[in-house]
Design a protein around this nucleic acid. Structure first.
Lengths: 199, 199
DNA sequence: TTTTTTGTACTGACCAGTCAGTTTTAAAAG
DNA sequence: CTTTTAAAACTGACTGGTCAGTACAAAAAA
């Protein structure tokens, strides 16, 4: 049972909410948002259907909350890793943090990738761009300032590219090569980024 | 109206099928598979609902056919670009071909990204891995043979990484920076891959 | 003549959301 | 410590609507 949830303000209600997030993220990862019924979420969470609506009001609000929560965790994980001697060390560390995060919360990775583009969740997506892609952009800008990277690098595009690359690889690895050590995947990606592959 | 469809064996029936693919890919890109109704697809295609079932039998079969069709076009586009003096030239060309393909068929890119992970479409996904990721893997292997790339490169992971990177960037560009020239995006990605960014 | 499409009407399953009633919790009163 | 009280949390049967798929007769195309 891998869930996006770990800890949060305690209390009966908060606990129920987290159980619902956990059930929802797994089911939505497998079936997609629309195909996942509130009944199924409630059943997996071990609560009555009415409880879902008592806590969130609508199915959409439940999903919105789930996205917010997950993006928050991801953002925390990445920015926590962004420290480092040089900007390039920091970049490696952020890539590793993203790989580890999706290793633990693989269901959330798939939900993100699948549902990120729907207009219904603009708020969570905006936050993803600001707080998650922003970490990559900051690190890259720092690298520019340190002179480790060409000054005319298109930082926005590069940040998206790295994030998408890691996300795709993390999902593919979980689906097809779960035994492959995450360190090996990290090494491949880091080599790609540092030009130790070609030339 | 951007559709995945371009040309195919002519005939009334084939034409109807392609119109349905075109309508379906747009709607599914916006709303997702489950949320898209057969009624809506038929209406946008300008066809009676019964015609959908006459041609495909089920909604799932329509979508399966759409995926097959799109993956076939993508595979053709990429392998057609994989020629080139050196393997690294070929890699650049394949990246460009993928960017161009998703520029033209942006709706299909989003459908791929969103629905690729559901177990229901294993066949199309297997073909994607074989025929599309395979093009990247081949080019990278060729680069290894030419000595342009380290011999111990994890070709599979690298191929997935590059494909995912380009896919993510292509979608993000269409959504957020439609005016940004595709050549500039290509230059950023190619620089990343050739180590002209760091060091 | 055969194949394909149309339009309308129908069905049966499924599902988000509601609501009246029940249980739990915690605190105040005795 | 026990009882009372009221709010908060939870329950599950029910409802109204939606949708994939069917049926079919008539029309259009090949």
């Amino acid at each position: 049972m891998t869930t996006v949830v770990t800890m949060m303000a305690s209390g009966r209600r908060a606990e129920t909410r987290l159980r619902l997030f956990g059930a929802a993220v797994e089911l939505i990862a497998e079936q997609g948002y629309t195909a996942t019924t509130v009944d199924a979420i409630a059943e997996r969470a071990g609560v009555a259907k009415g409880t879902v609506f008592y806590n969130f009001g609508t199915k959409e609000a439940l999903f919105s909350g789930l996205l917010e929560h997950g993006v928050g965790l991801l953002s925390t994980a990445l920015s926590g890793a962004a420290a480092g001697e040089t900007a390039l060390d920091a970049l490696d560390a952020v890539v590793m943090a993203q790989l580890r995060f999706f290793e633990e919360y693989g269901a959330f990775a798939r939900v993100l990738l699948a549902e990120m583009w729907r207009t219904a969740w603009q708020d969570a997506v905006a936050r993803l761009r600001r707080d998650v892609l922003g970490v990559y952009a900051d690190v890259l800008r720092r690298a520019v300032a340190e002179g480790a990277v060409r000054g005319d690098l298109d930082v926005e595009t590069a940040a998206t590219a790295v994030f998408g690359m890691v996300l795709t690889v993390a999902i593919e690895r979980r689906a097809l090569h779960p035994d492959r050590p995450i360190e090996r995947v990290h090494a491949t990606l880091v080599d790609l980024l540092h030009g130790r592959v070609t030339g």
